[in-house]
Nucleic acid binder design. Structure first.
Length: 882
DNA sequence: TGTATCACG
DNA sequence: ACGTACGTGATACAG
C-alpha cells in the first residue's frame, strides 16, 4: 500500500476552527468549539486522503530563533483569547487517545517541524499532505508534497502541489519565500522592502528569480524600485530568512511512530462523551467496526402476540413490561392505535393490532406490573380513548434523561439516548419520518420499518433504564424521579385528555369585536401616516415612524429600528400615532393569537381545548404548554382578560382556581433562611409593604403605593438577579439610587445576600445548582471568560433554584391533589396548571370537598419554615376566578 | 428559517 | 468598560 503522510499545523487549524464555529460547551462549561472543528476537519482529511501516517505539529510558547534574530517578529499579534487557550490541552488529550503523533519543539514553530517532517517523508517515499490555514506552507509544495490550505472557515481545502503553484502563481513554491522577502507579511510583522507589494514583487521575481538574483542585478533596476531595493537589501534578505521554513529541525523522528489507525475506539468515544460530541461517536465506531453501531437484528425478534396467556404470565412474574403504542395521526380523543408493542426482555418483541388491544388489559390495568417506556404520556393518552387506564407508569427514559442531563437541549430523542448510553444507532423521528410538509406519518410506513424502529426503542428502554437508575441515585434525584416526575405523567395525561371547555360563540363575538376595533385603528393610523402600509411589519412601521414622521430612533435591532412596546412608550408624547399603534398591536395580538388561534384548535368531539403539557422542556423544571399554550392567556389588561371569559366550567361544574401567594419569595426565604423575610411571611405581612418599609426606612403604615410597587420591583428583581441598571430603568430612577435600594435590601435581608453569594460560589465550583429536591441545572456559562456570559450564568444560578423549587412544589401538589380526588372517588378533575396556579373543574356537589382538598394539598405539599399560602377562587369561567 | 414582538408566571 | 431580569410559546414578516 502506498504510504501517505498527513502533517497538520495544529495551531493554525485550531485557530481557524475557533473563529469559524459558534461557541460550544460541554456539560462542565469547557469551551469545545475549536476542538470540535479540529476533529471534524481531521475526519474529513482522513476520509478524503486516507493517510497511513499522521502527525500534528504545535507551536511552543518559548521564543523561536526568528524572535531571537528579529525582535519584532510577530510583534503586535493579538493575544490568544482564553476561550481558545483552554482548548489546547483537551485537544492534545484527544489526539493521544487517537494515538495520533504530536510534535513540538522549543525554539521552532510548527511550520519548521512540518518542513522537516515533510522532507523526511519525501525522502522515504511518502506522498505527503500538509494541512494548514497558513499560505506560507505553499513553499513546501512539490511533486511529492501537496499543501492543503483551508478556505471558507474550515469546511474546504485548496490543494497545492508543484504544478498547481506554477499554474496559479507562475512561480515555483520556493520562490514564494522570495516573494515574501520582498513584500513582507503584516501578520507576522515581517518587514520586507517598504513600498514593494505583491505586484512589484511578482514582477521582480519573474525577472530575476530570487531575492539574491534581484540584488545581484540591482544595476539593471530602474527608478524608485532601484532605490527601494538598494536601501533595503539587508531587510529583504532578513525577511526572506524569516519567511523560510526550516527543513532540518533537530528533532528525532521515526516515521514509523507516525502510523495511524491503531487506537482503541472506546477511549476516544469515552472522551467524545466527556466533550459532549455525541454526534461524532458514529464516526469513530465506523472507522473501527460499523456493525457495532447498529442494533443487531438477531438480538431481537418481532412476533405477533399469539399466546397472550403466556405473555401475561411472564409479565406478571417479572412485574415489568416494556410498552410502546403506535397511533395514527388524528384526534387525540379517537381510537386510533395501530399497534401496541410489548416486551419483557427487550429482545422478544411482540405486537398486537388494534382489535386485540383488550387482550392486554390485564397487563395494562395492573398496578403490580411496572411499565417501562419512552414518552409514556403518549401511550397513556392513546389508551385512554379505549377507556383503558395505563397503570403504574414506572420508568420513562425521556424523563429520566431530562433529570440526568438537562443540558442536552437537543430534546430527549430516543436516538440521542441510545447513542449516549449504548453507542447504538436508532433513527430519530426526523430520520424515520422526514420533516416539513413531506413528513410521513406512522401509518405510511412499511410494517417492517415501523416494527424495527419501535423494537429498537424498546430495546433501548430495556438497556438504558438500569444505567439511568444508577445515575439518578448517584445524583440523589431518584426521589424526584420516582415520587414526583413519574407520578406526574398520569396527572398531565389526564389534564390533556380532559381539556377545558370553551364557549365558542363567545369567542367568535370577541373576534368580531376585535376586528372592528382593528379596522378603526387601521384607518386612523393610515390617516396620520398619510399612507397605507403593513402595520404588522416592524420594518415598514419603522420606515413610517422614523423616516416619514421623523420620530427619534430610541433603539435599534439587528435588522433595523426597534419598534417594541418599550420604544413606543418612550415616543408616545411625540405623535398621536403611537398610542394607536400600541393599541392596534394589542388587539391584533388578542385576535390572531387568542381568538383565531384558539378557534382553530377546539376539539370538535369534545368542544374543549386539549393543550399538551410537556414535562421535558424547561431548564428549570417547570412544565410547558403547547397547542395551544394555555399558560399565557391574557390577564394583566382588562381587554385581554376578556379572553378568559371563554374558558368555562362544564354544565353542573364550577372552576376552582387556586394559586400560591408569593411562592417564589417564600422559597427564597426558606432556602436562604433569612429570619427577617421568614418572619414577614410568618406574620402574614404584605411582603412588598414590609420590604418597602425596611428598604426606604419608613413606618409600614406610611408606605405609599409608589413605594410598595418599587419594593415589589426590587423583590422580583432579586429573584432574577437583576442589576441596579435594570432596576433603575424599571423604576425610572437614577442608577445610583437603584444601587442604594439594592444595597439597602441586602442589608435588611442579609441572609439572602449570603445565599446568593453561596449559590454562585457553588455553581462555579460544581458547574451546577440544585433545587430543594435536588433537581439540577448545569450552568456552563458561569465559567465563561466573557464578562457578559459569566454574569448571565450568575443570574441563572440565582434564579434556577428558586424557580425550580417552586416548580417542584407545585408538581408535588398536583400529584397529591390528583391522588386525593381519585382516592375519594370524586369526578372533579384537575385540568390546568399555570406555574403557581391549579385549576380544577369541580362537580357542583363536590365543590366544598374539592376546595378543601386543593387548598390543603397545595399548602401542605412541602413542609417548610415558611408556610405556603393558597388563594382560592370559584367561578363559572376562568375570568370569574379572580 | 430566523427575527421581532408580545402574551403569561 | 463590558450591558444589563429568569422561564416559556405563538404569530407575522421577510429573505
Amino acid at each position: 500500500m502506498d504510504k501517505k503522510l498527513v502533517i497538520i499545523d495544529g495551531n493554525s487549524i485550531i485557530n481557524r476552527a475557533f473563529y469559524a464555529l459558534p461557541e460550544m460547551n460541554n456539560k462542565e462549561g469547557l469551551k469545545t468549539n475549536a476542538i470540535y472543528g479540529f476533529t471534524t476537519m481531521l475526519f474529513k482529511i482522513i476520509d478524503t486522503y486516507k493517510p497511513t501516517h499522521i502527525s500534528v505539529a504545535f507551536d511552543r510558547k518559548a521564543p523561536t530563533f526568528r524572535h531571537i534574530e528579529f525582535e519584532d517578529y510577530k510583534a503586535g499579534r493579538k493575544k490568544m483569547p482564553d476561550e481558545l487557550k483552554v482548548q489546547f490541552e483537551p485537544l492534545k488529550e484527544l489526539l493521544d487517545r487517537f494515538q495520533i503523533n504530536r510534535l513540538e519543539l522549543d525554539g521552532y514553530e510548527a511550520d519548521d517541524i512540518i518542513g522537516t517532517v515533510s522532507k523526511l517523508g519525501e525522502e522515504n517515499g511518502y506522498k505527503v499532505y500538509i494541512v494548514t490555514g497558513d499560505k506560507d506552507a505553499i513553499q513546501l509544495a512539490s511533486d511529492k508534497t501537496t499543501t492543503l490550505i483551508t478556505k471558507k472557515g474550515i469546511g474546504e481545502v485548496e490543494e497545492y502541489d508543484f504544478d498547481e503553484v506554477i499554474k496559479r502563481y507562475e512561480m515555483t513554491p520556493t520562490q514564494f519565500i522570495d516573494l515574501k522577502g520582498l513584500m513582507g507579511d503584516k501578520s507576522d510583522n515581517i518587514p520586507g522592502i517598504p513600498g514593494v507589494g505583491e505586484k512589484t514583487g511578482i514582477k521582480l521575481i519573474k525577472e530575476y528569480s530570487s531575492v539574491e538574483g534581484i540584488i545581484e542585478n540591482i544595476e539593471n533596476l530602474k527608478g524608485s524600485i532601484k532605490k527601494k531595493v538598494e536601501e533595503n537589501k539587508e531587510l529583504a534578505i532578513k525577511s526572506k530568512m524569516l519567511a523560510t521554513i526550516v527543513r532540518d529541525v533537530p528533532i528525532d523522528i521515526n516515521l514509523d511512530d507516525l502510523k495511524y489507525g491503531d487506537f482503541d475506539p472506546n477511549r476516544v468515544v469515552e472522551y467524545f462523551r466527556y466533550l459532549g460530541f455525541t454526534s461524532l461517536i458514529p464516526r469513530v465506531i465506523e472507522i473501527d467496526d460499523k456493525e457495532k453501531l447498529n442494533f443487531d437484528n438477531e438480538n431481537y425478534n418481532i412476533k405477533k402476540l399469539e399466546d397472550i396467556e403466556c405473555f401475561v404470565k411472564e409479565a406478571s412474574n417479572k412485574k415489568e413490561v416494556l410498552i410502546k403504542t403506535v397511533r395514527k395521526e388524528g384526534n387525540i380523543l379517537e381510537k386510533n392505535i395501530l399497534y401496541i408493542f410489548v416486551s419483557t426482555d427487550g429482545s422478544n418483541i411482540y405486537y398486537i393490532e388494534e382489535d386485540n388491544i383488550s387482550d392486554l388489559k390485564e397487563i395494562l390495568l395492573s398496578k403490580e406490573i411496572k411499565k417501562f417506556g419512552y414518552n409514556l404520556k403518549d401511550d397513556y393518552i392513546a389508551l385512554k380513548s379505549y377507556d383503558i387506564k395505563l397503570e403504574n407508569m414506572y420508568f420513562d427514559i425521556a424523563i429520566a434523561e431530562y433529570l440526568i442531563d438537562s443540558m442536552s437541549s437537543t430534546s430527549y430523542e430516543c436516538s440521542a439516548i441510545a447513542m449516549k448510553y449504548l453507542t447504538k444507532k436508532v433513527k430519530s423521528t426526523e430520520e424515520l419520518l422526514g420533516k416539513g410538509v413531506k413528513a410521513k406519518k406512522y401509518q405510511d410506513l412499511e410494517f417492517e420499518e415501523l416494527s424495527t424502529h419501535i423494537s429498537q426503542i424498546l430495546s433501548t428502554v430495556y438497556n438504558v433504564n438500569s444505567i439511568m437508575e444508577s445515575n439518578l441515585k448517584e445524583m440523589d434525584i431518584d426521589g424526584l424521579f420516582y415520587h414526583i416526575e413519574m407520578p406526574l405523567v398520569e396527572v398531565l395525561g389526564d389534564m390533556e385528555h380532559e381539556g377545558i371547555k370553551v364557549d365558542k360563540e363567545k369567542l367568535n363575538e370577541l373576534g368580531t369585536e376585535f376586528k372592528e376595533i382593528i379596522k378603526r385603528l387601521e384607518k386612523e393610523i393610515y390617516d396620520i401616516a398619510g399612507e397605507e402600509f403593513n402595520i404588522n411589519s416592524p420594518k415598514q412601521l419603522g420606515v413610517i415612524l422614523f423616516e416619514k414622521l421623523g420620530l427619534p430612533v430610541v433603539k435599534k435591532t439587528k435588522t433595523g429600528y426597534s419598534t417594541n412596546a418599550d420604544v413606543l412608550e418612550k415616543l408616545k408624547n411625540q405623535s398621536p400615532i403611537i398610542d394607536k399603534i400600541t393599541e392596534y398591536r394589542q388587539i391584533v395580538k388578542l385576535n390572531s393569537t387568542y381568538v383565531e388561534g384558539l378557534l382553530n384548535i377546539i376539539n370538535p368531539i369534545s368542544n374543549r381545548i386539549h393543550s399538551s403539557f410537556n414535562q421535558t422542556i424547561t431548564t428549570t423544571g417547570r412544565i410547558s404548554s403547547t397547542e395551544p399554550n394555555l399558560q399565557n392567556i391574557p390577564v394583566k389588561l382588562e381587554i385581554g382578560r376578556n379572553i378568559r371569559k371563554v374558558f368555562i366550567a362544564d354544565e353542573n361544574c364550577k372552576l376552582v382556581d387556586a394559586d400560591y401567594s408569593q411562592v417564589e419569595l417564600r422559597v427564597l426565604a426558606q432556602m436562604s433562611q433569612d429570619e427577617n423575610m421568614i418572619d414577614a411571611f410568618k406574620h402574614n405581612e404584605d411582603i412588598h409593604t414590609k420590604t418597602a418599609s425596611q428598604v426606604f426606612d419608613v413606618d409600614a403604615k406610611d408606605v405609599t403605593s409608589e413605594l410598595r410597587s418599587a419594593a415589589k420591583a426590587i423583590n422580583f428583581g432579586i429573584v432574577y438577579g437583576k442589576s441596579d441598571f435594570g432596576l433603575a430603568d424599571d423604576l425610572n430612577i437614577p442608577v445610583k439610587q437603584a444601587k442604594e435600594y439594592i444595597e439597602g435590601y441586602f442589608e435588611k435581608y442579609d441572609k439572602i445576600k449570603n445565599y446568593m453569594d453561596q449559590t454562585i460560589e457553588k455553581a462555579t465550583e460544581d458547574g451546577y445548582v440544585t433545587t430543594i429536591f435536588n433537581r439540577r441545572r448545569y450552568i456552563p456559562e458561569i465559567k465563561s471568560s466573557n464578562f457578559m456570559e459569566r454574569n448571565r450564568g450568575k443570574r441563572f444560578a440565582m434564579n434556577a433554584p428558586i424557580q425550580g423549587s417552586a416548580a417542584d412544589i407545585i408538581k408535588i401538589a398536583m400529584v397529591n391533589v390528583y391522588k386525593k380526588l381519585e382516592e375519594k372517588n370524586l369526578k372533579s378533575k384537575l385540568i390546568l396548571q399555570v406555574h403557581d396556579e391549579l385549576i380544577v373543574e369541580a362537580i357542583k356537589e363536590e365543590l366544598d370537598i374539592v376546595k378543601s382538598i386543593v387548598k390543603d394539598e397545595m399548602e401542605n405539599a412541602v413542609l417548610m419554615d415558611v408556610h405556603l399560602d393558597v388563594d382560592l377562587n370559584i367561578g363559572d369561567s376562568w375570568y370569574e376566578t379572580k
